[in-house]
Amino acid sequence: MRLAPRPKTFASGAALVWRWQRILWWIFIINLALAYWATKGMAERADWALSHSVASGRLVNGFDLFSLAELAGQPDTPIEQPGPAVFHYSFIFAIFMLFATGGILATYVFDAKPTATAFFEACGHHFWRFFRLVIYLMLALIPVAIFTVICRVMRNRIDAVSNSPRSADFFFIGALLIILLLIMVLRLWFDMAQVIAVAEDETRMHRALRHSASLLAHNFGSLFWLYLRISLLAWIVVGLGMYLWMFRLSPLSTTAAFLLTQLMLVFWIAARLWQRASEALWYRQYQAASVTELAYTPTPSPQPAPIPYSTAMN
């Protein structure tokens, strides 16, 4: 079935995130705490080298790339490669988010203040279902990865034969945009499957995916535009924040820089929750429309009056 575009979903989704903003702050705090722990050891080692050194001034007054590289290049390096710790803590965060998504979606779908017990029950209830969805998502990403590789090969071929240095790069930028949109569509599809799993207590994820795909196929424009608008807004805000941080903020303003970077992150998380809340809201409206339709379907009237879904929803 097809639902007409509903401009209110966009704003109502934001209102839903605002209403249950406690979710946002918890995610933010956990993300920040894990990132802090991931980098704490490195910071402590660097602190040992920097806090009592005149040379650290080169990092305070502006940002001398050489000083950072010099620090990293020392044999008793104060800065170890942060990769493993950051990856480990990021992995923990990803698992946490997989766990919390059930509770978050239950809150948005049912739009009722959950108790801690109910929230975590929902988290646990849906965890393994969502875990299976992650595996399906990985499989779905394989064709995208193949497409990316093909685009890269084509880029290299264009680069090899074209006299213009721009042709290959422009081609690849265009391809990356398509890949980005494909990934967004995939995420939209799987997000909807998660909403269905929560709203319908669907245990079979392949059925949730089929249902989600059907909804997406019939309402692609409105759903994708909903997602894209929020993504664009998030990218603009983060881009603006980066610009302020790099070009406008005084290099001495460490506190302001911290607040600005965290503000960017809060908005980014909020945007992601906004997408989920909007989708949950959209699905609630869809459910309501389905009920309305069901109420009229069995009417044995020889000429049942069709009810526009938009009217039914208003």
Binding site: T39, S51, V60, P82, Y89, T261
Partner: peptide, 15 residues
């Protein structure tokens, strides 16, 4: 100040 600045960048990247 230097370590706070660096730590902020690392935290942000990690996030």
């Amino acid at each position: 100040r230097a370590i706070h600045k660096l730590h902020n960048i690392w935290i942000f990247g990690s996030e």
